[in-house]
Design a protein around this nucleic acid. Structure first.
Lengths: 237, 237
DNA sequence: GGAGAAATTAACCCGTTGGATAAATACTGT
DNA sequence: ACAGTATTTATCCAACGGGTTAATTTCTCC
């Protein structure tokens, strides 16, 4: 019989790279769903369609696996941010885009939020060991610093802000809302994740930050576009 | 011999209430330090100076213990907030005080942050079971709503904001900074918890929120008190 | 086509951990 | 003072979970 063809039913196939990816993906799911201590090595193996031994063979023990996942997560968001191209937008638009990107990225990648929470619960014990992660953030900070400086020079922004401080605030507004939506929804008795609530939140955040930077609180919220002079405009809810 | 006096060395004393408190305190420490899955029942017992059996006798199993801790945490912050007395301050001052209180409360009670993170990792599974917690938040929201309304009527605030949205933003700015300070300090390469950094953060947050509400970005940052007309003022860093 | 390396499976090991059982000790009211 | 109950201690254990060892199968290159 032709050798290339009916190779019979092999019990398994070799696929080191694919296996490694499946393991990391499964681990990401598991760690973000259950935290570091709550994660189960057996579940990761099962989810990856692999034998538990494979985790140790391809990545390492539980902690190393976790760090690999974490590094991958940072890698992904920073690389997407690099494509934002804020240089060619006028400063207020650049800030708006950064906020919108951050918000949407967090929405699309809830595991990223969970992983960060988990790592902070561990006081960044693992991240501190990583050499990769430390180096990839200064370009990002410079990107924001440039936007701020341009905004001041153009007169769009009233006050210079430390770019790190600004980025932390932008991230905070999205991060806290989303990562704590479960408890917040319970205590405030409303679903913070339905369509309408999410739209309102984005508008609120953009308004808050841009108003503070530009001093133009009329443009604060989108619905405040055509108000009757200076009297207050009530935001949706 | 006098009975009240030399009662000899008792092997142990009864103290149900004290024991319960010590257990809850120890559990708070343990859960906030290690998360739900990472917490060890034996460690809690040891830390409480008790026998493991006592946890089950006085509170319940691990999950019930955890919920009791969580409820206690919410209870404490809401009760302190009730003493803020925002009604008698003019609106911008009231907001400033709320921000400062929130910031300082989180600083003084880091376990509260950890507990919330842990509970959100669990998607509020436990909190949903709690009947106590749900009821104690509407007064708080009303308190903020009143401040906002007063600010609009007085002309201090330019735009009406949903009080829940506003509170979430205020909490977010402090919460994220503090709860994620470990990873943020690593990736940005500076210690976000030293004295100077904390002072700057508080000023930044107050400036951000008040500028957005009042539209007075000149008063944004404390150091921007005496700027040379409308040109930009560089914030500390 | 087959030897040796790479990848994967299967089975096991052993400390840990949440929880339970039973016995001992301290109070309280009478 | 003592009986009965509330509180606490002393052990125990079965399941779990991370990690390891050893055998099996597939692939590659000569």
């Amino acid at each position: 019989m032709a050798k290339a063809k009916a190779k019979r039913t092999l019990k398994w196939q070799r696929d080191p790279e694919g296996m490694r990816l499946r393991i990391l993906e499964a681990a990401k799911q598991e760690f973000s769903a259950h935290g570091l201590a709550g994660a189960r090595v057996d579940r990761i193996a099962a989810k990856a369609g692999a034998n538990k031994r494979m985790l140790y063979y391809h990545v390492g023990n539980k902690d190393e696996l976790y760090l690999a996942v974490l590094e991958g997560a940072y890698d992904k968001i920073r690389s997407e941010e690099r494509g934002l191209d804020l240089e060619h937008l006028d400063p207020p638009e650049a800030i708006r885009r950064l906020i919108e990107f951050t918000w949407n990225y967090f929405l699309r990648n809830p595991e990223f939020l969970s992983l960060l929470q988990t790592e902070n619960l561990a006081r960044a014990k693992h991240l501190k060991k990583s050499t990769k992660v430390k180096s990839m953030h200064s370009p990002f900070v410079e990107m924001i610093r440039t936007v701020v400086r341009r905004g001041i020079d153009s007169g769009d922004f009233q006050v210079a802000v430390d770019p790190v401080q600004l980025y932390i605030s932008i991230a905070a507004l999205s991060f806290f809302y989303l990562s704590n939506s479960a408890t917040l929804s319970v205590i405030f008795g409303r679903d913070l994740l339905d369509k309408k609530a999410k739209d309102e939140r984005l508008a609120h955040m953009v308004g808050l930050v841009l108003a503070a930077l530009t001093g133009q609180s009329v443009a604060l919220f989108e619905i405040a576009k055509a108000p009757k002079s200076r009297s207050a405009v009530v935001q949706t809810v």
